[in-house]
Amino acid sequence: MLRVLIADDHEIVRRGVRDVVENHLGWEVCGESCHGSEVLAMAQEQRPNVVVLDVSLPGLNGIAVTRQIRHALPATEVLLFTMHDDDETVAGGLAAGARGYLLKSEGETQLVAAISALGTHRPYFSPAVAEMLLEAAVHERKKSRLESFTLRELEVAQLIAEGGSNKQIARRLGISIKTVESHRAAAMRKAGVRTAAEFVRFAIKHNLIQA
């Protein structure tokens, strides 16, 4: 039996979540709370598999409650179920240990999917939140040097690393030797190397060629 604890200060929301849980075979509501400061004690007593938790709660906000639950009950997963979709709230909730983040604008199908996922210790995010996280990951991570290469520079770089001469590369790609030289210079500059040997090491490291 999957045990779900619901914490939200709006009765209509609690009722809606309760109906979803109780209508799902093998799930049960093991507790409800409308006050943040009550949730941890209730969770410790009931040992739910999943806590469906609003971010905005009186007494203690949902992010602080999430941190408490994850510290005291590491086997219990937290699904933040909220209207808040700003970067700071999402990041704060995930940093606190929530493995699910669902917007209240989503439908019953998404709520079922979220509880199901967390019930098997898999993360679940609203599509809008998942897109936000992906965007942040792409822009905040350290970019590979290869990302600055054009497609043609990548082609030339691989052929250089494989030992091709400018003449051979020009023939292979159907471009002039002067164009090869231009691409070669750009590729080595972007790779941050000066010699052919350094370039080969760069190519191996970035999987342009096999060692």
Rank of each mutant, 00 (worst) to 15 (best):
R15K: 15
G174T: 05
E181P: 08
V65R: 11
L159A: 04
T109P: 15
K104F: 08
G119F: 03
L2T: 11
M42E: 03
L151H: 13
S176H: 08
S56H: 09
S165Y: 00
A191F: 15
G164S: 13
D9N: 15
K205Q: 09
I169P: 00
A157I: 04
N61R: 14
E155H: 05
N61Y: 12
D54L: 10
L208I: 00
E32Q: 11
R184M: 13
S182M: 07
A72K: 07
G59H: 05
K143P: 08
A191H: 13
T89P: 00
S176E: 03
D19V: 15
L5Y: 03
L53E: 10
N166E: 10
A203D: 12
L73N: 11
G107N: 15
R3H: 10
G16M: 02
M1R: 06
R141G: 14
Y101N: 04
E162A: 14
P48L: 04
P48N: 04
G164Y: 07
R70K: 06
E153A: 02
F125Y: 15
R184Y: 13
R184H: 13
E147L: 15
A98W: 09
Q44W: 11
A98M: 11
V112D: 03
L94E: 00
V21K: 04
S37M: 12
I63W: 08
R70C: 13
K104L: 01
Y124T: 06
E162L: 15
M1A: 02
R172Q: 12
V52W: 04
M42W: 01
N49Y: 07
A96E: 01
Y124L: 13
A64V: 01
E45L: 04
V52G: 04
V39E: 06
A197C: 07
H24W: 12
G93I: 09
H139V: 04
Y101P: 00
I69L: 10
R189M: 01
K178M: 07
A114L: 02
E131V: 11
